Simulated scan of single mutants.
Amino acid sequence: MSKLERIATFCGQCNCGCPELWIDPDAPDEQRVVITDDFGQRIQMSLAQLHDLVSDVKEGALDALLATTRR
């Protein structure tokens, strides 16, 4: 069993099992990044895919969606 390394917790203001970003150093390159949610689900992706996702978000890909869902 691999040892996941926690990178970030999203929210973190409660004990609901907030979504988290992990690195699995023992996983194949295409599955190294792990994102877990508060429902026990997880997705895995490569570091390159995470880089693309972060770049898209920084460039505004989700701005319209987030503008309609502000707290």
Rank of each mutant, 00 (worst) to 15 (best):
L50D: 02
R71L: 13
L62K: 02
Q13D: 15
S2C: 10
A64L: 09
D38V: 05
Q31C: 07
A8L: 15
T69N: 10
V54P: 02
S55C: 05
E5Y: 01
R71A: 12
G40W: 03
E59W: 03
I23C: 06
A67T: 12
T69C: 08
A61Q: 06
D52M: 06
D63V: 03
V33W: 00
V34G: 00
L50I: 06
A8V: 15
D24K: 06
L50A: 08
D38F: 12
D37E: 09
D56E: 15
K3Y: 01
L53K: 01
C11G: 10
Q31S: 12
V57Q: 08
V57L: 13
K58G: 08
I7L: 13
C16N: 09
R6W: 00
D63E: 07
L66T: 10
E20A: 15
F39V: 06
S55M: 05
C11F: 06
R6H: 04
T68S: 13
A8Q: 15
I7W: 07
L66V: 10
T9Y: 00
D37T: 07
A61N: 03
R32Y: 03
D38G: 15
T68C: 08
L21A: 04
T9L: 00
F10P: 02
F39W: 08
Q44L: 01
L47K: 11
A48S: 14
E20F: 00
L21Q: 04
N15H: 15
P28C: 12
I35K: 02
L62W: 04
C18E: 03
A48C: 04
T36A: 07
G12K: 05
A8Y: 14
I7N: 07
L66N: 14
V57Y: 11
Q13H: 15
S55R: 08
D56H: 15
F39K: 11
T36V: 07
D63Q: 06
F10M: 08
V34S: 01
I43E: 03
T69F: 09
Q44V: 05
V54I: 14
G12W: 02
L47D: 04
D26V: 08
D29Q: 05
Q41P: 00
T36W: 00
T68L: 14
N15P: 10
V54E: 04
G17S: 11
T69H: 13
D26A: 14
T36C: 04
E59G: 05
P25V: 12
E5F: 02
C16M: 10
L4R: 12
R42V: 02
V57F: 11
D24V: 09
P28S: 15
L53W: 02
D29T: 05
I23L: 13
G17W: 09
I23H: 05
G17D: 10
A8F: 14
R42W: 01
Q44A: 13
S2R: 06
A64C: 03
A27H: 10
E30W: 09
E20I: 09
A27L: 13
R70P: 03
A64V: 11
Q49P: 01
I23M: 08
R42N: 12
P28G: 13
T69G: 04
R6C: 07
